[in-house]
Amino acid sequence: MDITVKILRYNPEKDSQPYFQDFTLKGISEDWRLLDVLHEIKWKHDGTLTFRRSCAHGICGSDGMKINGKNRLACSLLLKDINTSKPITIEPLPSLPIIKDLVVDMSSFFQKYEVIKPYLINKTPPPPNSERLQSNENAEMLFESAKCILCACCTTSCPSTWSNENYLGPAALLKAYRFTFDTRDDAGDERMDIVDNPDGIWRCHTIFNCIEACPKEINITWHISQLKKKISTREI
């Protein structure tokens, strides 16, 4: 199978604007992942092509990119699952500053993540001779939200993020759910105060782009809606 790949290139030392470069690859198997295609280009065609990848098995979340107009992980996408009759377009994650080619500056993404205090805060001493226990029901409630790998596919796919750079974004709000609904955590109110503002949870307009983009198939909007309900009812 022959394919054409259109990649957005940007070299900060040479280019003033990003531009698309076409690569034609011959004899590609449809069982290849998009990441294998990028490796093929980097190793055999153009060694200057720059992209992030680490585990290459959909766990580390480093190779999030916009493929054919949609955010996905290059390592979790098979060629047979996309249309290869037309050129495959690969761009960096939207809205984040491009450092080089497909590598973006994730600083703002992680700053927003840190804002919601993504760690267990406990004000009571642990029970003697045992760990802090959690019920099965509570663990069930957190399983889906704990699957997040912080690839930034959701936050950068959200139209609210594109138009407002201060919006916390789905990934941070999902993590806020994960700790607010944890019975072992004591800082739920503190976290709800942080997300309860126009640049926080209320900027979510239920557009569902985050769900479409999430490589872990987390229903992020559902988790955000649970937080919205909790915030709205805590005063009543």
């Binding site: 900060p12 809205s95 984040l96 500053p97 450092i99 139209p159 782009n209």
Partner: peptide
């Protein structure tokens, strides 16, 4: 870095 922030372009091009 190249600031690619352009909400109109993103809204038009994103699937």
């Amino acid at each position: 870095t190249f600031d690619q922030k352009n909400w109109v372009k993103e809204n038009l091009s994103y699937k």
